[in-house]
Design a protein around this nucleic acid. Structure first.
Lengths: 250, 250
DNA sequence: CGTTATTTGTTCGTATGTATC
DNA sequence: TGATACATACGAACAAATAAC
């Protein structure tokens, strides 16, 4: 006889905690006890519900919650799997995406999602010291490791100084080198803002992640050596796939 | 005749996007158009469902999603409200919670959630350069602004050097001053790690926030002037209520 | 200080749609 | 094409928190 993989805590207080939370606990226990390993597939919703003697919706709720916490990965039409451990992403003085992803043993790649000259929103204008409506060059990239989306990077540059940034980037394929083509050879981070929230539906689709899993938003403003603001960069990370490490400068 | 506050985008493609996403859009439009202002209460779920001619569960799903994105604040038994703007929380060389919250115009307060000497988990041991199972002094605080929970701060110190840290803190009510009572008068951040995830049920309860709203986790290790590791600090922020601002040191 | 109405939270029920293999 | 698995939507009932009376 083999012990069951999932068991509800058979308490007296069964009615104290919501049933779906008890299911969540049961799955977490199965993972942390090693009865389920990363990459392994869970039983289907129907089967799991039947095994535990509860309704499928209740199981769904627990799975949805754990998907949001990054412990499970739900793939429609295929099944539910135990998630892999997140990779560490280093943000420092001059770290770049490419080297970062390679350091984690993954193959970096990028795809342009949107690009062109647009009017600055209030958020962008505030950060670049412009007026809302002023023209900015926008470049939105989906950056991946081993083909898996890691983050959406949104770069905004004053359009008067960098009018064809997006076109140049498409040829050069490096933000740093594209700035160098404008004779901006060193730049420095001026302000950084961090937030966490649920993704918009569009972001969830671009990152190929469930809507219930949060994103980590890293906003920073960069200035050239003369102190002129050249770039506002807002990166939306798939938080279940990366954690951010800030390097101390000595 | 007054225009309705909520309207679904009048179709053609009605079956293209899930209905609950269309409801989400309708609420977002109402907020960004100013028909709903921060602090204002939404109609009840039943009423909203009836107005739109759809099921209550479908409305609930949209509201739950927007709660997670920080646009709405759902309070059981009371209603659903448009969320206030998050406050900015500065993290720098020597910023402290108290001054930070006061700068936002709020009254700071704290409550000890748990304290005592415990065995180091793997995470804690790795960060303090100890072995799993070594004794550490743990101090878990709920920090609030105007009585609203802002973050859970978890402090871990080597127990051999700081055996009664928690007891001293309860008298002194300041982390910096408690360290000073051990003759540690200046300390420096050594490593920082950032992540975003859904809260555990316990964290959601402590922070009095919905489980669907993410938390931002800020982990840092501090060393005394001689370079000895004195403290591993993991702060769990209610992401809908604060955004983190990193100050640059000159 | 209970009682009651209101509002959100949980659970089971049932049917159908859609992606993947 | 069919089978499997997750996604969406409507239905019904009761539980639990809150506020007002």
């Amino acid at each position: 006889m083999t012990a069951p993989v999932f068991t509800l805590s058979d308490e007296a207080e069964t009615r104290q905690r919501p049933l779906w939370l008890q299911v969540e606990d049961a799955i977490v226990r199965a993972i942390s006890a090693g009865r389920l390993k990363p990459g392994e597939q869970l039983p289907g919703e129907h089967q799991l519900a039947e095994e535990l003697g509860i309704h499928r919706h209740t199981v769904r709720r627990a799975i949805e919650s754990l998907g949001g916490r990054g412990l499970l990965e739900v793939r429609r039409g295929r099944g539910t799997f135990v998630a892999a451990r997140p990779i560490a992403y280093r943000v420092g003085g001059h770290s770049r995406f490419t080297g970062n992803i390679e350091a984690a043993g993954l193959v970096p790649s990028a795809r342009v999602l949107r690009s062109g000259i647009v009017k600055a929103t209030k958020d962008v204008a505030d950060n670049l010291d412009l007026k809302p409506g002023d023209k900015v060059t926008a470049l939105e990239l989906l950056r991946m490791g081993d083909g898996i989306p890691i983050l959406i990077a949104r770069h905004y540059m004053p359009a008067d100084r960098f009018p064809d940034f997006a076109e140049r980037f498409e040829k050069i394929q490096s933000i740093t080198k594209t700035f160098a083509s404008y004779d901006v050879i060193g730049y420095r981070r001026r302000a950084t803002r961090l937030a966490a929230r649920q993704p918009t539906p569009q972001e969830a689709a671009d990152l190929r992640q469930p809507r219930s899993a949060p994103v980590l938003v890293w906003g920073s403003v960069n200035a050239d050596p003369k102190g002129r603001l050249i770039n506002y960069d807002s990166s939306v990370f798939a938080a279940a796939r990366v954690s951010i490490v800030i390097e101390e400068e000595d």
